[in-house]
Structures are given as C-alpha cells and as structure tokens.
C-alpha cells in the first residue's frame, strides 16, 4: 500500500468534484492510500501573493505545518490541483532559498502554535505520483476497456511543469507525462504543441477579453487537430475551458464544442468503472458524443434551464461581445 498525504484544495468538492469522485474510484485498483491533511485551509490561489507576501506564505505554510503532524510512514504531500501544487512547492522552496522568509513565516505560524521546517515534506502533483511511483506498467495492467478510438489532446496547463523547482518533469514546455499516461490507457493521443500554454488563470474573472483569446487558441487548435476532447490535470484549467467556452464562443462568434475531462475520469473508464461514478456528465460542454465513439453511454443528468428565447418583461442588458470587450483602437 502506497500512502500519501492529500491536499485536496477547495475546488475538489465543488467545481471539480468530478475530479475527486474519479480519483476515489481509481485508488483501490492502484493500491493507493491518500490521507487528507486535517483541517487544511485554502492556499490562496494566485490572489493572496499579489496582496501581501508574509500572510500569503503563512497561509500556504499552515498546510505544510499541519501535514508534518501526519507524516507517519510518508513525507509526500500530493496535490491534484496545479495551482495548489505550485503554491505548496513554492513556499517550501522559497523558505529555503530565502531564510529570512522562512524565519518570518515561522514567526507567524508560531502565533497559531505551529512550525514548518522547509524541506521536511516532498510536494508533488497527482500525475507525477501516478506516472513515476505507481508507474505506467501497473496502470496498463489495470486497463480492461482500452480507450482506442478516442481522439484526445493532453492539456498539461502552465503551472505544473513550470517553474519546476524540484526538476520533476520531462520538459518545461513539452512534457510528455500526460501523453504517456493516456497512451497507456489505449487512447489515440494527438500531438498538442499548446499543451503547456496558459488558459488564462484568473483572467476569466478580471480581464475576460485576454482570457477568452487564450481559451480560443487552445480550443481552436485542439479542434483543428481533430481532437474529440481535451484532457486536463487541473481544476482551474477545467473550469476555464469548460465553463467559459460558451462565453468565449459568443465573444468571437465561434461555435466550438470541445469537452474537457480530468485524466482520472479517463483512467476510471479504462479501468472499467461506470461513467456516472466518475463524475462524467457534470461538465458543461458535454462529453457524451465524444464518449459514444468508444461505446460509452453517459447517463443524462439534469441540464441547465435553457435561457428564454424572446425578450419579455424587463429589458435586459445586451450580452458581452467582442465589440464591447475590446478597447477602440486609437487612430
């Protein structure tokens, strides 16, 4: 039994609950045991770092300090979210690189009766553990329903392979871990040069025009290459490309329909699990047609109410379009 400490991050039981459900389904076949860090707190995503440094790092480090109390038999913390992974890894690394930072963060932690000695833990992303600890051979040996015929592009996102403080990845711009894993499941993996390009991160919230363009590039390229779906390793990437795809479509007047699933959902399918148990069907851009290609039938979940067709009652503001979004060019 391989034991790891789990830092789930806030998305795992809300927007990315499909990720958590599917992860739970593959633990047993892979003989993995994940123990959740008791009373973990949000890592602050990329927001706190831009406001106030010591509180930002203390917020992250509280989780590391709590994790050290559960180290019985392991020193590895696993994060399924790329942003959480980077934050935890970064705090651990910078507290060593800059001892003053380490000292101040510990001074703050002491106010809560906690302490973290940088370097105590090993912070890793879920896919790193699956590919390098569990191993592709083991994964391949569990496949009972090969995904052959399913054309996928692997989307690693940006924060996972970079900046790579611990030199874990095969490459910073074109890492192949996700490609290899999906091939082990039997999927038809299409080369995707944009695999580590950013999907916009929090820009969907604060600078939508910038984010929509980044989303459009990723989706358009996947579409042109003949992909039936994108596969992701991060709740934020999934959220951006799934939940904002329609808005981006509207913004550019395009009509893409590119589902994006978590790699754990595809692992579950390949291991013979039922789509309903893997959170398949809660994505907003439905993967139903894509999965029909490999004979997987997705149960119909409740669809969101269709927006009213006709303007009736109160006049509504117009929808956000590219024209409103873009600043007028200065002549």
């Amino acid at each position: 039994m391989n034991k790891y400490l789990l830092y789930p991050g806030c998305s795992m039981d809300s927007s990315a609950k499909a990720y958590m459900e599917s992860l739970n389904e593959i633990l047993e076949p892979l003989d993995l045991h994940l123990e959740e860090i008791e009373d973990w707190n949000c890592c602050g995503a990329t927001e706190y770092l831009g406001i106030n440094l010591i509180p930002a790092y203390s917020l992250i480090a509280r989780n590391l300090a709590l994790a050290t109390k559960q180290m019985d038999g392991t020193r590895t913390v696993v994060a399924p979210c790329s942003a959480c992974y980077l934050n935890l890894a970064k705090a651990d690394y910078y507290m060593q690189e800059r001892p003053t930072l380490g000292a101040k963060v510990n001074e703050a932690l002491a106010a809560g009766g906690l302490e973290y000695k940088a370097g105590t833990l090993d912070v890793r992303h879920l896919i790193d553990v699956l590919v390098y600890d569990v191993g592709l051979d083991t994964i391949r040996s569990k496949v009972v329903r090969p995904l052959s015929g399913l054309k996928v592009v692997p989307y690693m996102g940006c924060m996972l392979p970079r900046p790579d403080y611990q030199h874990r990845w095969s490459d910073h711009e074109h890492p192949t871990e996700l490609d290899d894993l999906l091939r082990a499941l039997g999927a038809d993996v299409i080369d995707y040069p944009l695999t580590t390009e950013c999907c916009g991160g929090h820009m969907t919230q604060i600078g939508p025009e910038t984010a929509f363009e980044l989303i459009r590039r990723l989706v358009a390229d996947a579409d042109e290459r003949g992909a039936q779906m994108m596969v992701t390793v991060c709740p934020m990437c999934q959220m951006n490309i799934d939940a904002y795809q329609n808005e981006a479509n509207h913004f550019f007047g395009t009509n893409y329909h590119m589902p994006i699933l978590f790699f754990t959902q595809l692992m579950g399918l390949a291991f013979g699990k039922e789509p309903g148990d893997l959170g398949i069907g809660v994505e907003l851009v439905s993967a139903r047609n894509a999965l029909a290609n490999i004979g997987v039938e997705v149960p119909v979940t409740q669809e969101p109410a269709a927006p009213r067709k006709k303007d009736e009652g109160l006049p509504m503001p117009r929808r956000w379009t590219r024209h409103e979004g873009k600043k007028e060019a200065v002549k």
């Binding site: 809300s14 927007s15 990315a16 609950k17 499909a18 939508p208 939940a243 904002y244 329609n246 808005e247 509207h250 069907g281 809660v282 907003l284 979940t301 409740q302 669809e303 969101p304 109410a305 269709a306 927006p307 509504m316 503001p317 117009r318 929808r319 956000w320 409103e324």
Partner: peptide
C-alpha cells in the same frame, strides 16, 4: 454586462452540483 451571458453557466454549475 456580463451577467446575462454568465447566467446559463452559473445555473449549469449549480444544477450540476458544481
């Protein structure tokens, strides 16, 4: 201005428990 186009998305996220 974005709210109307966000609403189907928000609703979808809620009805799908996300």
């Amino acid at each position: 201005l974005r709210l109307p186009s966000m609403m189907p998305m928000g609703l979808g996220m809620i009805t799908k428990g996300r």
